[in-house]
Amino acid sequence: MDFFHVLVVLLESTIRVSVPLVFAALAGLFTERAGVFDIGLEGKMLGAAFAAGAVAAVTQSVWMGLLAAILISILLSLVHGYASITQRGNQIVSGVAINFIVAGSTVILGEAWFRQGGRTPALAEGARFQTINLPGADAVREVPVLGPIYADLLSGHFLLTYLAFAMVPASWWILYRTRFGLRLRAVGENPGAVDTAGISVIWLRYRAVICCGILCGFAGAYLSLAMTAGFVKGMTAGKGYIALAALIFAKWRPKNVMFACLLFGFLDALAIRLQGTPLPLVGQVPVQLMQALPYILTVILLAGFIGKAIPPKAGGVPYVKER
């Protein structure tokens, strides 16, 4: 029973740390499937987290914070879109630029506006998300096995957590069952064919980029409005890149994205849990190895040793209409 209890706690924290990864990786899924590479997920998430923390602190409203996060994230996405779609610039360079601009300006503006060393003020209860207890959670807690799973694992999360996992089938449905999704995927594989069919490649890619902005906004808002009560500088701490790794690990498919994010989240939760405790057989595992494991796994996958990750064919290539 003790092992079972540990497992439930571990899985519960896995879910908690996976949420921003799921949002951000799905965000990347939309743009990359439309043929726009985006290594600016990190920057958008950080910008959104800052906007959410700052606006929620000023207005004392969690919803205004969420709205601000989404708006800022869309704005940053449009900068990326303008550079890589309209100006046909290098998409990697643009993503790198956005990451830097956001990393610097969140600290400068945060310090200038709030003077708390790059933090935003700690949020009161009304200005951040509260956990939701599913109906009957307390009643069934004593039921063996299923009780803790329902009461501790499934219940007691934030609204955004449930939204994140609901976005997985929703993204699948949008991408694979709607006309917009079909065209979006087509524009990432063969934009010439989409253009021939009389559909605007530019407008489609812009819409994909906006979808990405919305989802990154949720990811950022989760960090500063739910996971912690306020913005801390550099709080994304590489999560955007882990999400990118998860997206590749999932071979650009929605359901796999969720499992990849959960796997990377689990490694993260495990690394915290195992700090300093020796494992049977292998002895003490350096915590740095656990931290590097998502990246190492992604490299091994990319090398084609675990299946093959084939990116969208037109990814990274700006579309030039023939004259």
Binding site: V93, V96, A97, I98, F100, I101, A103, G104, I108
Partner: peptide, 20 residues
Amino acid sequence: DMIVIIQGLVILFAGALENM
């Protein structure tokens, strides 16, 4: 951190938006 912003802006305007 101002330097980080300028660095990002240089990358944006001299790199991604070089043809603007």
